[in-house]
Design a protein around this nucleic acid. Structure first.
Lengths: 414, 414
DNA sequence: TATTTTTCCGTCGATATCGGACCGTGATGC
DNA sequence: GCATCACGGTCCGATATCGACGGAAAAATA
């Protein structure tokens, strides 16, 4: 047989970053290990980073000189041998501002590079008011928070992270046709925050932030992780096995609110289609289906629904169970497809009761094949309403301690 | 407000591989660029690898000395300046054996490190006969193929890659409870092949191989890619934006044959559940639903179905259209969720006609949001029945040219 | 108390890579 | 013939990392 060649040229991937490893990468690695609490001494760093003692030593010296790290006086003995010289983030490394914006409110926070929350608060904003009003309020809130946090010296703001409830283009730093955020399309969110605070700004989808926060608060073997938020809308976030967010081709990955599910009624959805899961199983959709008139009259709200659930109202529990079944069908499909190590449910409906979790579990474990569910952990969010801030903190601190970001830390303020 | 701290410790990821870049990584990078055809001269390598000229020069010298690369006599001028000294894989680098096993047959091939197919054939095997019989036949076939291919000298076999139609654990090299492969569970496939051919063996799922083959035959910007195979069964494969296969937590990712779809009948499936898409929309399921008695009597087979389709039989086209609608619903869901740059359909049903593609497209573009479909390319497989071999070639060549694999190339056979 | 063990950490020379400088080579165009 | 362009070889200084050695601090042991 003469070589007929049925194959076209195939791309081969590189085995990894080749070329010289920049010293900045080593610095970043060491700084992140200290910032994440994974290492508090040089010996820890050697083990965690897989670097030689000398390399770690050089990097730590450099970071001490730059004021990123500081020696931590405490030297608790471990029982045997010379106790380690403990290291910590210096506190002079600067602050990171966080804003996790939901449909009706925003969590704001100031954290330092060692993940300490220096101040946080919740403010009332409505994304329907448009980007100018909302970002005004957020900027004012963050500046105030920072004022309260910066009692020791005046550490600079090194990064701002904002999460918005809609699709975003993280590279351009703009929302992309967000359904529930009129007027936000292509508004230069990142550019504005970058100008205001004179530092890098990171824009991310709110559910992605929660997914990332959950994933990084859990052991690394709990990835890949799928986060499903059931609140006013329904959304998803994916964290890969390596612990990084999956954005897809257009940054639209995880946008599962408008998939159609088996057995759902053909309710019209705001997106123009019918039968979207968001239109039949979101908290808003469930509240609408209640026949019980709410306390104050008018249409039942999500808060009414939560009140009824916590009181154990049979009709409310019934509709939630029904919605849970529909969501469970979807989750079962996604578990088959993506085979995550963990599925985490979040959002207002999960906080109210365990009905949703129970319903989803029931369907998933019945429908999905054992191979995909054998090791699957399916739980409610462990961070609750703070999952978004946690994800934002991860993105912000990693941004500051990334190789290019480290350069800004060369000359710390006096 | 005093620092209440609602956040638990969060893991920060490393910025990248730190530590010393091994010389073997540089060698691997250079070798892969030549093997993939991305670079044919040192100047190309400098641009493609991002390495210094001196580093590339050193690496190429080393690879020439080891006999991995050879100078290619041809020096076609580009019109201006000195023409490059062209490089090519030496041919003494060894061979890679490939086996893409389907339910009823296997494609076998021998390729060299420059992706040339030296010999290939299709053999009839039935995985139902169990691993011993099937692997016997494959080994015999591969040895025969290799005999025909090895007319020039006697290049060693450097790797064997096998794809099987079921879930596998690539690390352990064993199938994991494959539904259509009785007797294969936990059979040490990789270990056996490794012993037979005295070289590394790679085991992968067959649909994953096709997905990888498609992805690597297309430009890099066509990732992430979702491959959907519709044949005897229904399966999926995911390639990430970086061009690597997504396996999920248990290696079960892409196993979408047993998800339930909207509007499908409650047909019993071999997996024990009802309404699985594989039970209602696979080629086998469609053939069963034909009322036309087949040529030779008995139950209609997949081949009967394909014959009817190519003849334009209205009933056959009708059931295919119907199945395409169900598959389209699923693909629409997955497109929302994963947001791939490309969806590729493969398998026997797509090869027969364009009905399936048309039906899937129709539903996906109607159901999925524009944000996720705006840039989506949804086509039939470009490699057809050879997609699996292409993916296997990628895995095999990358294995041979990986840093540990390079060591075996130090002392080429005389 | 003196010694050993254990663990942590700093210093030094060795190694490998990087990137720039300089120059030679082989083609084209004037 | 000469200039130009692009490819490529060689040398060298800079630098990141490593391994080996030895010192320092605490606990265990004699």
């Amino acid at each position: 047989m003469q070589p007929t060649s049925p194959l076209p040229p195939l791309r081969l991937s590189a085995p990894g970053p080749s070329g010289r490893v920049d010293a900045a990468v080593t610095l970043s690695t060491v700084a992140r290990l200290v910032a994440s609490g994974a290492a508090v001494s040089k010996a820890d760093l050697v083990a965690a980073a897989g670097l030689a003692r000398t390399t770690v030593s050089t990097a730590v010296d450099e970071l001490l000189a730059r004021g990123v790290l500081r020696p931590d006086g405490a030297r608790p003995t471990t029982g045997r041998g010379r106790p380690a010289d403990r290291l910590a983030m210096s506190g002079r490394g600067g602050h990171v501002l966080l804003a996790d914006v939901g449909a009706r409110g925003a969590h704001l926070a100031v954290v330092d590079l060692s993940q300490r929350v220096l101040a946080h608060e919740h403010i009332d904003v409505d994304v329907q008011d448009g980007p100018d009003a909302v970002l005004d309020a957020i900027e004012v809130g963050l500046i105030a928070l920072r004022g309260r946090a910066a009692h020791t010296g005046d550490p600079a703001v090194r990064a701002v992270v904002i999460g918005l409830p809609g699709p975003v283009d993280g590279n351009l730093g703009i929302p992309v046709r967000p359904p529930i955020m009129p007027g936000w399309h292509a508004y230069p969110v990142s550019a504005r925050l970058q100008r205001t605070f004179d530092c890098p700004a990171v824009l991310e989808n709110d559910v992605n932030l929660r997914a990332l926060g959950e994933a990084r608060a859990l052991p690394a073997d709990q990835a890949p992780l799928l986060f499903v938020k059931v609140g006013t809308g329904i959304g998803g976030g994916l964290v890969s096995r390596e612990g990084v967010l999956h954005h897809g081709a257009d940054g639209a990955a995880g946008d599962i609110g408008h998939v159609r599910v088996r057995g759902g009624p053909d309710v019209a959805c705001a997106c123009g289609n019918v039968g979207c899961i968001e239109a039949v199983a979101s908290a808003r959709a469930i509240a609408r289906r209640l026949t019980i008139p709410p306390h104050g009259g008018g249409r039942p709200t999500i808060n009414d629904l939560r009140a009824l659930i916590s009181r154990g109202d049979p009709e409310a529990l019934g509709v939630v169970r029904e919605a849970a079944g529909l969501i469970g069908e979807l989750v079962a499909t996604l578990v088959h497809f993506y085979n995550p190590a963990r599925v985490t449910l979040g959002g207002s409906l999960t906080a109210a009761s365990d009905e949703l979790l129970a319903g989803v579990r029931s369907v998933v474990y019945q429908r999905a094949l054992p191979l995909a569910t054998r090791n699957l952990v399916l739980t409610n969010s462990v961070l609750g309403e703070y999952a978004g801030l946690a994800g934002a903190a991860v993105l912000g601190i990693e941004r500051v301690l990334s190789p290019p970001g480290m350069d800004a830390l060369t000359a710390p303020r006096p």
